[in-house]
């Protein structure tokens, strides 16, 4: 059997794959956080809860409305994203002129409310969401067995990440977003409806989280607390990558997933903390993050 540094190849590749999939979720979620932070300057603490709402919406949609996975993948981000846009318009906008710390506190409060309400309704144990039939089973690669659904998650997350990067960096709408991030008052003086841009951006960031939630539903137990534990790691990823950088968020997300996966192979005890160790090192050496601009 082929060994890599004393570990069987299949085990090594398996952990690498798991790491990459975790990394894809980190990338999707930190991307949404980066987009929201860029324009609103709010650290969206409700992001984990919005991811959880995505998974729950898929689960409840399947149970009560018979919405299948593929339709959920399309509808849930739209619905949860629209809910996010509504939150921005009705709640976040009222405190937009205050110190951004208030935005952080408010979104944190919202996260607790979403979580608490769902715990009250469904408990914490969590339910499972079936893997869609078309993606059941797996593919036997020469070096490992790859469950089809995991391969799909990786591809879908990467496509959405790169699509988002393309929209922001290469299109006119993206130019509005980048310019609005730099100088919203001047954009307004050019005739751009900045308040609307802010609402749509928040909605889009929330939709990304909900999309990640639907992708995650067949992989992890769907429970009200599934977002909060993930979000802490995602914040560490964002700190490492540098707040506000789009490509930085994607690359750092994937890289941190891989590092976590590798640590699981060679020193499993540190697997849950390795990202935070990297974060501390980055904060000491490059406080603005790997891809962030020095202030």
């Amino acid at each position: 059997m082929t060994m890599i540094f004393g570990v069987p190849l299949a085990v090594f590749m398996g952990q690498l794959m798991l790491g990459l999939i975790n990394g894809a979720f980190y990338a999707l979620l930190s991307l949404g956080l980066a987009v929201i932070f860029g324009l609103l300057k709010i650290v969206n603490f409700a992001h984990g809860a919005q991811y959880m709402l995505g998974a729950f919406a898929a689960l409840l949609g399947a149970q009560y409305l018979g919405i299948n996975y593929w339709l959920a993948l399309l509808l849930v981000p739209l619905v949860v994203g629209a809910f996010g846009a509504l939150l921005e318009r009705l709640v976040l906008r009222r405190i937009a002129h205050l110190d951004h710390l208030y935005g952080l506190l408010l979104t944190f409060g919202l996260a607790l409310i979403f979580e608490g309400s769902l715990i009250n309704l469904f408990g914490v144990s969590g339910a499972s969401y079936p893997v869609p039939e078309a993606l059941a089973g797996g593919i036997k690669l020469p070096f490992m067995f790859l469950p089809t659904y995991r391969g799909w998650v990786l591809v879908a997350a990467l496509v959405v990440c790169l699509g988002t990067w393309f929209i922001i960096e290469r299109t006119r709408l993206g130019a509005y977003l980048r310019a609005g991030t730099e100088n919203p008052a001047l954009m307004q003086a050019f005739g751009v409806n900045v308040p609307l841009l802010v609402t749509l951006t928040y909605g889009f960031g929330v939709a990304l989280a909900a999309f990640a939630g639907v992708l995650a539903a067949p992989l992890y137990p769907v429970s009200p607390t599934m977002g909060s534990s993930l979000l802490i790691v995602v914040f560490a990823v964002v700190v490492i990558g540098g707040m506000g950088s789009i490509l930085g968020a994607i690359l750092t997300g994937l890289a941190m997933g891989l590092i976590e996966g590798l640590t699981k192979v060679y020193y499993p005890e540190a697997a849950n903390t390795v990202i935070f160790l990297v974060m501390i090192m980055v904060l000491m050496l490059r406080p603005a993050g790997l891809f962030g601009k020095e202030a």
Partner: peptide
């Protein structure tokens, strides 16, 4: 006077 800022450039 009562216009929103983004309507004035128009």
């Amino acid at each position: 006077l009562g216009m929103k800022p983004h309507h004035i450039p128009r």
